[in-house]
Amino acid sequence: MTNRPMLEIVSLQKRFGDNIVLRDINLKVAKGELVFIIGPSGSGKSTMLRCCNRLEQPSSGDIIIDGRNIMSGTSRDLDRMRLKVGMVFQGFHLYPHMSVVKNVMLAQRKALNRSAEEARARSIDMLERVGLAHKADAMPAELSGGQQQRVAIARALALDPLVMLFDEPTSALDPELVGSVLAVMKDLKTKDMTMLVVSHEMGFARETADRVIFMDGGVVVEEGTPEEIFGAPKAERTKAFLSRVTR
């Protein structure tokens, strides 16, 4: 069994015209690790996450997933790569014209070519994992924000990804719905999923993260265990950010 990292970001740079959003990011995420990314808005954390499945195109640098450099390859390779990298968005983005179970089934049928029965069975499985199997035939509009986000997680999990990326998964939710989503994410962690999470939920980070990374101005300012970062931050910028954010 190799100890190679599941996800590796090498010298990642991202420029939007003259604006340099990411400067030379380097990161290794081991299998089963939960890396939590914090930082002020505009720090580039979302952009970095979105480079990991090439929703944003890196200006330079490499992204290596399970030993394979995803920067090269055809568009079909790109589609196939995205099966291995699951993404959960702040806005959930369930397909409004399909029922919940069909939302989870779609990519399985079209991208993985699973049969209808197999896809449906898998989808119900995934929905059970997130506690929403009883809503399988409901339409997304009938669900609360937290429920929609959990379906979105199931939709990504149904493709058996190696890595899950979370882009502020609870930021658009009413406070009382946040817990249900975090519970699902915690469950994923216990099942050894490799996870990269951009979020403001510091309490969750303290409980479940293996590593916390603080980003600002397009660079990784500091990284360490939750105890190190939240308890004894070394850099001034880290201290300033944390004092602004924690009540």
Partner: peptide, 22 residues
């Protein structure tokens, strides 16, 4: 919205599949 495109592409659906199904 862009979100629909991104969500679908991020699950491995191709441009054409996204257009047709989503």
């Amino acid at each position: 919205g862009k979100g629909q495109w991104e969500a679908a592409r991020s699950t491995g659906l191709s441009q054409t599949q996204t257009l047709t199904n989503v």
